[in-house]
Design a binder for these strands. Structure first.
Lengths: 348, 348
DNA sequence: CTGAAAGCGCTTACAG
DNA sequence: CTGAAAGCGCTTACAG
């Protein structure tokens, strides 16, 4: 516990001056390079980049923030599940921490409060706004943001607007991957629970189900599809509908985890063993997926990473806007993962 | 979107110099006051405090971090529920963000990896360590930390060690509050599901149940108490045990939400309506409490706030240690709340 | 395209 | 107990 440790442990320790002298340029040039400023000769830029690599230089975000003023990232949210919000916040806060930015939160419900929440965010000095679901699918919210011209990034929307940057997974491919898993297990009679029609992923996940069934030469009778709303309660109803048929499907694909958890509860109520008597799977990989028993096979949507990416995109946008550059909206696709747990098994 | 906005919106804008000139002292004295340094005359301290209030001064954490080096807060975690971890991270990251500190995570399972994880945390420059459950109840982990003499704070342990600061709720009083709710609803035949015996809150929550029953002049037959492990699955087993008796209790108090969610699932399986046929309640108020239907009546444990408090305590400890002061361990009790939702009702 | 200077707000020695 | 000076690492005008 010596006092000397304090400085020694400082991350790397190289400064813009170290990089500058090694590269044979001024600190200013180094600063310009690390901030993506274009007015640096290719030659100098390369020299600086090399020096940065050799010295293992990392910018001191605290010092930068001290000079530049702390960036404020606004988060406009309505009523996502708590689990989603937590995962999202972890990612957003982590990235903000690393960039020395502050996160400010604002909640809203209806249209009128959307307007107010956005105004409050801007009054509080938000330099850009993060828009998670379901707001990222709200036309009115997106329009307001566009009119204000404030940098914003949509997260986990399935149909991103070209006007705005977005970070998402491919919901269609994700659902297709789950279907391949079920088909590979030998299931041919599969039920599906749709999500809230207001959310953009709903249609894509359903379409993947239909396409996969057709692709396998299988019929989809109307009684194998139930409407849900992405809530546990709606899953309860949908599961009773699907399992109350004269003949039962051997598997149910619920288009999110909350509804899949409800299917398991209903199945248990009917003395059906999961997965022996009924295979169940969800989508999203939220905490409930590992809370219930058996744990859910699901598609992992990397919410935390997506939030990090969204903050990074937002900061990039704000930066380039400040230095007067044009900024092209970016649509970033993140990788999803099929997570096989105990709720799915073969048909034999 | 004028450039001028950038500076205007800066938080308040008052600096140590502003405060100093208003208080008629030097910037140094102001700095000493805001850092809790003792060597300032009472008179000057008061003058500074007044000036801070009048100017609405807030220290610029970015500038401080630039000068002092970024503080690193280590988080040593093993296998809490994801929901707990998320809520905890949100609080810890928020507080770290506001203090300009960085959070570094390290995971461990068994004893050997505990040692390694702590070493890694220290190698990575952790200035202090946060210890959430269940590690905060691990004697070996606490001993290692004590031997190293590194500032640490236990969170949500029911029996805090006097050697270490701790932030927690009163588990006994919390459980008592829930019992009063059940008793007030008219329940006299109440089942209880105990938690993992290795966790310190387990005993206290159980004791409160026993004491409340005795206090109301009610018996607690052995078959009204089942052993759980705080997991959903153990709750499934415990619920079957409790509800499989010739006569059923009218209410079940599960000592956490995961187990309470399992009780609801089992009850539904037996065609019992919750809360009409069976009242169910949990403890902790984790996301699952609002995911299941009906939503759970539970005791809200303010994990996010507790994590914030823990980080604040830790930073205070590190600061005073650095400036050579002794630091008294602090045990902070946070307020819990009874949250009444739809899973509990009266007996008539 | 490039750099020398001054400064962001705070704190660490160093004096008194 | 108190303060004048120097500096943390970076960036914003200002020159060239």
């Amino acid at each position: 516990m010596t006092e000397s440790g304090k400085t020694e442990r400082s991350a790397g320790g190289a400064t813009v001056w170290d990089v500058a002298s090694r590269a044979g340029v001024s600190a200013m040039t180094v600063s310009r390079v690390i901030n993506g400023n274009t007015s640096v000769s290719v030659k100098n830029r390369e020299k600086v980049m090399r020096a940065i690599g050799e010295l293992n230089y990392e910018v001191n975000v605290a010092a930068r923030a001290a000079r530049i003023g702390t960036l404020r990232v606004g988060l406009l949210y309505s009523n996502p599940s708590e689990a989603f919000l937590s995962a999202f916040l972890v990612g957003a806060l982590t990235e903000c921490g690393q960039s020395g930015a502050h996160l400010i939160l604002e909640h809203c419900d209806n249209l009128k409060s959307q307007r107010k929440a956005i105004d409050r965010l801007i009054d509080d000095g938000a330099d850009g706004i993060l828009v998670p679901p379901p707001l990222c699918d709200s036309k009115s919210a997106l329009r307001m943001l566009a009119e204000l011209g404030i940098p914003s990034v949509a997260v986990a929307t399935a149909r991103p607007s070209p006007q705005m940057s977005a970070v998402r997974i491919d919901d269609y491919e994700g659902a297709l991957t789950m279907m391949r898993h079920l088909l590979a297990l030998g299931h041919t009679d599969i039920g599906f629970i749709k999500g809230d029609p207001e959310h953009t992923p709903t249609q894509l996940r359903y379409q993947a189900f239909i396409d996969a069934m057709r692709g396998a030469g299988l019929d989809v009778p109307a009684e194998r599809v139930a409407q849900g709303m992405f809530t546990y309660r709606s899953g309860l109803l949908a599961a009773r509908e699907l399992l109350g048929q004269p003949t039962r499907p051997t598997a149910i694909f619920a288009s999110n985890d909350d509804m899949a958890a409800a299917v398991i509860a209903v199945a248990h109520g009917m003395h059906l063993q999961v997965p022996d008597d009924l295979t169940v799977c969800g989508f999203d990989d939220t905490p409930v997926a590992t809370t219930v028993w058996p744990e859910l096979t699901t598609i992992h949507q990397p919410i935390t990473e997506m939030a990090r990416g969204a903050v990074a995109l937002l900061i990039e946008h704000i930066r380039s806007q400040r230095s007067g550059h044009a900024y092209d909206r970016r649509h970033q696709l993140m990788p999803y993962t099929l997570v096989v747990r105990e709720s799915t098994s073969g048909t034999d």
